[in-house]
């Protein structure tokens, strides 16, 4: 499999900051992840996740503050529900739900961010190419 693409939707206050910290701490992690910053993980929409997967992304990572620590106090609870919708639809429509991952990564946890990205990339490599990648009749 070549050219893995993982789209990551990260919340500004925790997981994006953690990614930043991983960078400034010069941690090495798998380079396949493309980050899109959201002000809050609750800005995720099931449509974003499904669109990425239908357009050939191999995996979608959603990152937010740990439950109870949301900068806007409850956004991540909504995010969890939205990811649940995306996963359920993926399941109903024959798309592997393992390609969607939701992780809580606090701002101070640069190493955890690197670990999650490595782990998820490993998982995606195991799953192989997303069949939508080369499909023209979508």
């Amino acid at each position: 499999m070549n050219d893995i693409k993982i789209v990551a939707f990260l919340c500004n206050w925790c997981t994006y900051t953690a990614a930043d910290l991983a960078g400034t701490s010069r941690l090495k992690y798998e380079p396949e992840v493309r980050i899109i910053r959201l002000m809050c993980s609750s800005r995720i929409d099931p449509v974003f996740i499904l669109k990425a997967l239908m357009d050939g992304a191999d995996g979608v990572l959603v990152g937010g503050c740990a439950p109870g620590d949301c900068h806007y106090s409850k956004g991540n609870y909504y995010a969890r529900r939205k990811v649940a919708v995306a996963k359920t639809i993926a399941e109903s429509m024959g798309i592997n739900t393992e390609r969607i991952r939701l992780s809580w990564i606090p701002a101070s946890e640069g190493p955890l961010f690197a670990e999650v990205v490595n782990e998820f990339t490993e998982k995606i490599k195991e799953l192989g190419d997303n069949p939508t990648k080369n499909e023209v009749y979508l």
């Binding site: 449509v47 499904l50 239908m54 639809i89 109903s92 429509m93 080369n134 023209v136 979508l138």
Partner: peptide, 22 residues
């Protein structure tokens, strides 16, 4: 991809719609 079936997002529309009204 060398080929694209048009219009784009034909099947994605159904998934998106399901996410809105499901």
């Amino acid at each position: 991809k060398n080929t694209l079936r048009l219009p784009l997002d034909r099947i994605f529309f159904h998934m998106g719609r399901l996410s809105h009204m499901g």
